[in-house]
Simulated scan of single mutants.
Amino acid sequence: MQNEVVSREEWLEARRALLAKEKEATRLRDSVNAARLAMPWVKVDKDYVFETPDGRKSLADLFDGRSQLLIYHFMLGPDWDAGCTGCSFLSDHVDGALPHLNHHDVTWVAVSRAPLDKIAAYKQRMGWQFPWVSSFGSDFNFDYHVSFSPEDLAKDKVFYNFTPMQPADANDELPGLSAFYRNDKGEVFHTYSSYARGPEELIGTLMMLDRAPKGRNEDSTMNFVRRHDEYEEAAKAPSCCH
């Protein structure tokens, strides 16, 4: 459907009205960011061990000499053949940001429960460079509520995005982002986590699409997304929606 076509003067009036809302959203985002920075922290006392290409490392080791750590909980389970499409979409935006994050005292690491060889194979397929480690055999994913055992999924409720939810709406792996701080004494603190659509602003492509004439042009959240090496194959398939 084509939007209403108006004169340049009428368009300018509508654009100024939208600008007021955009400025309101910017001020709200600034307020949310300030509240996020003011959140209390929780000291991490549990010892977590991760399998990395350089051997076994602790959570503190993942900081790689920096004081801030962002961990992306990438959905790739031990028995999965490929990484989650949505997680892959977000991860396509990471490599270019790494020099900027590192220069700003921030380390980015993806964590999955899949064994390291499976992670390495998928990482090579996607052509990514960011650090990606395995929490296989660790409680890390379960403690941060992004992985669920068969016993968890058999219960009446599972805990995700800070609220109980129906197991039917969950998967054995779900996405999220967690932030940690390491002080000069080597103590590690959990400062923030975000789940579901919370990390959406990290996906620059979505922000660009929001400004295109058709927007995201989706029937459900990100249903148009494919792994970046699958678009040509998807384009050959018949579609009733696009």
Rank of each mutant, 00 (worst) to 15 (best):
Q2H: 12
N3M: 03
E4D: 08
V5F: 10
W11S: 00
L12Y: 01
A14E: 11
R15V: 01
R16F: 01
L19V: 00
K21T: 00
K23F: 10
K23N: 10
E24N: 01
A25S: 10
T26Q: 06
L28Q: 15
R29E: 14
V32G: 01
N33Y: 11
R36E: 11
W41L: 13
V44W: 03
K46C: 03
Y48L: 07
P53H: 04
D54T: 04
S58Q: 03
A60Q: 04
R66P: 07
L69S: 06
H73K: 09
L76W: 00
G77Q: 01
G86D: 14
C87G: 08
C87I: 06
D92N: 14
D92A: 13
D95A: 12
H100I: 11
N102C: 08
T107K: 14
A110C: 14
V111G: 05
P115L: 00
K118P: 00
I119H: 06
K123M: 12
Q124C: 05
R125S: 15
G127P: 11
S135N: 06
S135V: 05
F136C: 04
S138D: 14
S138G: 04
S147R: 07
F148T: 03
F148K: 00
S149E: 01
L153A: 07
D156C: 03
Y160R: 12
T163N: 08
T163L: 05
M165P: 01
Q166A: 13
A168E: 12
A168T: 02
D169K: 12
D169N: 12
L174R: 08
S178E: 06
Y181L: 15
R182W: 02
D184G: 02
G186A: 14
V188Y: 04
H190A: 12
S193Y: 01
R197F: 10
G198A: 15
M208S: 07
L209K: 15
K214A: 12
G215A: 07
G215D: 07
R216L: 15
E218A: 13
S220F: 10
T221D: 14
T221Q: 11
F224N: 09
E230V: 05
A235E: 13
P238H: 09
H242C: 09
